[in-house]
Amino acid sequence: MQGKKILVTGGTGQVARPVAEALAADNEVWCLGRFGTLGVADELAARGIKTFRWDMDDLGADTLKGLPEDFTHVIHSAVRRGEDGDFTAAVTVNSVAAGRLMTHCRTAEAFLYVSTGAIYARQTLDHLYTETDPIDGKAEWLPAYPVGKIATEGTVRAFGRVLGLPTTVARLNIAYGPGSYGGVPMLYFKRMLAGEPIPVPVEGQNWCSLLYTDDLVRQVPKLWDAATVETTLVNWGGDESVGITDCIRHMQELTGVTAQLVPSKVTRETYQFDPTLRCQLTGPCEIGWRDGIRRTLQVMYPELVQAGSDG
């Protein structure tokens, strides 16, 4: 993409920041956020990114006053996750923010909303989830989170049609890579380093569709291209089905750090996606998950994994 004016929310996070930084090379990129972390706004500015302070929790009608309205593309990744357990706030804040953002940017060529695969009704561990699978919004690890996402998907669909704004809803799987906290695989690795037990299913293993940062960044323009006024819905994950236990064992092989795997009836729920539709829209991924994990560890823990090492 070149010469576009792009708006990014959640631009300090695992997903949207690398997108913003990559697109800033050839486009005018703005990031919205609270920028509560000291120095992060300056870091974005150093990459040529303009920043605008926006607090989603502030439901005032003029929170976007002063922000340009002539953006050509928007990626909305910011979210109130609901760690406080307040379901009403999760629904209200996320839905109102999305509606106001879409209204403000109603002349854009495309709007991309980053949703989550955590909204799917849980089936078997090895079920391959498609875009037509039922949803229920249940997640023991963060109950309010998927409820807020479902509500916001509805808002985004409605405003896309009412405003005539081409929209894509991308239900994200697990994004990871050498930025921010590294994604869920690196959360597991931190537990390995601390010698903490890691719950795994008593039988079988949890499956997911890991999406490496470089592939995620490459796919964003394609997801914008796929946007429609009726809303294009797509599962956004990698090409490969990845067993969480296999992933942990791979990190163990690469680093020599022992993983304390403990069979348990309660584990963190993950979902593997059928990549057929996403591949049709974006083309295949370029980074296999084993290589992606190695690259991530090499950057974040270079003392444990040497460049070019396979374990």
Results as ranks from 00 to 15, higher is better:
residue 8 V to R: 00
residue 12 T to Q: 10
residue 16 A to T: 12
residue 16 A to G: 08
residue 20 A to P: 01
residue 27 N to I: 00
residue 33 G to S: 06
residue 40 V to W: 00
residue 40 V to L: 12
residue 47 R to N: 04
residue 51 T to R: 01
residue 61 A to N: 11
residue 63 T to R: 15
residue 73 H to G: 10
residue 74 V to G: 09
residue 79 V to G: 05
residue 80 R to E: 09
residue 85 G to P: 10
residue 89 A to L: 14
residue 95 S to P: 09
residue 98 A to H: 05
residue 101 L to N: 11
residue 103 T to F: 01
residue 106 R to M: 13
residue 110 A to L: 04
residue 110 A to Y: 08
residue 113 Y to C: 04
residue 114 V to P: 00
residue 121 A to C: 06
residue 129 Y to H: 03
residue 136 D to G: 09
residue 139 A to T: 10
residue 140 E to G: 03
residue 145 Y to N: 04
residue 155 T to Q: 13
residue 156 V to Y: 12
residue 159 F to D: 11
residue 168 T to F: 05
residue 174 I to H: 15
residue 177 G to D: 02
residue 178 P to N: 00
residue 183 G to D: 13
residue 185 P to N: 05
residue 186 M to E: 10
residue 193 L to S: 06
residue 194 A to M: 06
residue 199 P to A: 01
residue 199 P to T: 02
residue 200 V to W: 06
residue 201 P to L: 01
residue 202 V to M: 06
residue 204 G to T: 07
residue 206 N to A: 15
residue 206 N to L: 15
residue 208 C to R: 10
residue 209 S to T: 13
residue 211 L to N: 03
residue 215 D to S: 08
residue 221 P to N: 02
residue 229 V to K: 04
residue 236 W to D: 09
residue 237 G to R: 11
residue 247 C to I: 00
residue 253 E to H: 15
residue 254 L to K: 01
residue 285 C to V: 11
residue 289 W to G: 11
residue 291 D to N: 10
residue 292 G to W: 01
residue 292 G to P: 14
residue 292 G to C: 04
residue 297 L to D: 04
residue 300 M to Y: 13
residue 300 M to V: 08
residue 308 G to Y: 07
residue 311 G to A: 15
residue 311 G to V: 10
